[in-house]
Write a protein that binds this DNA or RNA. Structure first.
Length: 353
DNA sequence: AATTCGGGGGT
DNA sequence: ACCCCAGAATT
């Protein structure tokens, strides 16, 4: 039997929530526009990423790529560079591909129809609803982590399936101001109805919240079983050529799919054996080198992997860089122009770059 | 249905 | 330490 809200309760929730949002909402950059491109960009950056982390990236990205056309014409490496440090780099690659689709198939304007939006790479159910409601004012629902938590608490239902959450959210979103309502629901989850120690006394919905009535709102929703990150080891080599003004460092580009796809890194290989690193270096670039001492170790936690990266100095490069091997010698200043992960930025700091 | 994909801020 | 975030794609 589906849990849901009677109509009177639904109207109350809408009114209370919208009234609260009018006075409590944060002044965020993407709330100052209805440009579908900007809404789309903000929603993409906000996937699994906190507001405070996104803001500077959002501003810089728009300076660099002010509209769909600019993004469609851009070089993917430049897009990745603008994303460098934000994480989940498939978002950036998909965003750029989607911009090309929008120029080619939709005359450069984001489509309004759910099916056409969902066909764009990187645009899933949440982003479809967000663009349709916020940019176009359509009555479309959103379910993100915030909404799931708020609904779970309002109903004191610890384990609502996604399909059920979507049905509830679709019933709840009003025709009148779906953009304000959806953002209000998420803002409530972000500011008051937070995972732990929710601010129920300040919540406009505490009067009709079943979880609040139980006295233990933080018990909802039920926590997901958390697989802890698997420990992995890798080794990277710092290989320099020349000195002074001529000084250059060897960087390799990762394959465009998978972890940190398309980003640049020091020559690296799984494990901790310098011999394996040298063999991999030769296979990938045609270069040979000698292994010197260890520079240090970098510890980096991804959500699903805990990496210990051993960094060794390499020396005496010989041979010629094979053309088309996605490798290049970079001066320290050229380094700033490459898309790098937070891990590699950390690693390069260790190596005084 | 599970797993893969980053990074960081709050507690 | 642990949690989890304005999720989507892949397997």
């Amino acid at each position: 039997m589906p849990t849901s809200f009677p109509r009177a309760r639904r109207d109350l929730i809408r009114r209370q929530l919208l009234a609260w949002y009018r006075s409590a909402q944060r002044d965020l950059p993407w709330r100052r526009t209805r440009d579908p491109y900007r809404i789309w960009l903000s929603e993409t950056m906000l996937q699994q990423t906190r507001v405070d982390s996104v803001i500077p990236y959002y501003e810089r990205f728009l300076e660099r790529f002010p509209d769909v056309q600019a993004l469609a014409l851009a070089d993917e490496q430049d897009v990745l560079r603008a994303w460098s440090g934000l994480g989940y780099y498939a978002r950036a690659r998909n965003l750029k591909r989607a911009a090309e689709c929008i120029v080619r198939d939709h005359a450069g304007e984001l489509p309004r129809a759910a099916e056409q939006l969902a066909a764009l790479p990187g645009v899933g159910p949440y982003t479809v609803g967000a663009i349709r409601s916020i940019a176009f004012g359509e009555r479309a629902a959103v379910v993100d982590g915030n909404v799931a938590r708020v609904l779970s608490r309002l109903l004191a239902a610890p384990e609502l399936a996604p399909a059920h959450l979507w049905r509830i959210a679709e019933e709840l979103v009003p025709r009148a101001a779906p953009d304000q309502f959806n953002q209000a629901l998420m803002e409530l989850g972000a500011l008051l109805c937070v995972p732990r120690s929710p601010a129920c006394p300040r919540c406009p919905l505490s009067g009709c919240c079943a979880a609040y009535a139980t006295g233990r709102p933080e018990d909802y929703p039920a926590p997901l079983p958390k697989p802890k990150p698997r420990e992995v080891e890798a080794i990277s080599g710092l290989l320099e050529r020349g000195n002074g003004r001529q000084r250059a460092l060897l960087l390799l580009r990762r394959p465009s799919k998978g972890l940190l796809g398309g980003l640049w890194e020091l020559p690296s290989v799984a494990g901790d054996r310098p011999e394996a690193l040298l063999a991999s270096l030769h296979e990938r670039t045609g270069l040979r080198a000698r292994a010197q001492g260890e520079l240090g170790r970098v510890r980096h936690i991804f959500s699903h992997r805990a990496l210990t990266l051993r960094v060794v100095r390499l020396s005496r490069p010989s041979g010629r860089l094979r053309p088309g091997s996605d490798a290049r010698w970079c001066s320290p200043s050229e380094l700033q122009g490459l898309p790098l992960s937070a891990l590699m930025k950390k690693t390069l700091r260790l190596a005084k770059y």
